[in-house]
Nucleic acid binder design. Structure first.
Length: 107
DNA sequence: GGTATGACGTCGA
DNA sequence: CTCGACGCCATAC
């Protein structure tokens, strides 16, 4: 996945948290993004930090549409998240999301 | 200024 | 394919 030198980091002055939340809000139903994807979309490389932000303020956005790069889910939320994703018709394989099909390209 | 932390990622066993 | 160790990097203290 290419990374434009000047992607769409909105305002680099704005806290990463706001950019991350905005990005997650835009994920269409039935699709998902990896933490690392969100990170790039907002112009950072800290996938871990994305998760941290979600833990803090993710309650107001479709957090269930953000999964790990390999399609697995974070332990604490995996049950609820899995249920919601299924309900939206996201491609699931076993206990993981089928990234090759459900991954949002940012269209 | 440095240290600890985590809804992550990747590679090797 | 699964599991563990190590690396990353923005935040909070």
């Amino acid at each position: 996945m290419p990374k434009p030198p000047t992607p769409a980091p909105d305002d680099a002055t704005r806290p990463l948290s706001e950019r991350v939340l905005s990005c997650v809000e835009q994920i269409p139903p039935g699709k998902v993004l990896a933490y690392s994807d969100v990170a790039e979309f907002v112009g950072t490389k800290a996938a871990r930090n994305v998760g941290r932000i979600m833990a803090a303020e993710g309650g107001s956005v479709p957090w269930h549409r953000v999964v790990r790069a390999d399609g697995s889910l974070a332990p604490h939320i995996r049950a609820e998240q899995l249920a919601r994703l299924r309900a939206e018709g996201v491609a699931i394989r076993g206990e993981r999301v089928d990234m090759s099909r459900a991954r949002w390209d940012g269209r």
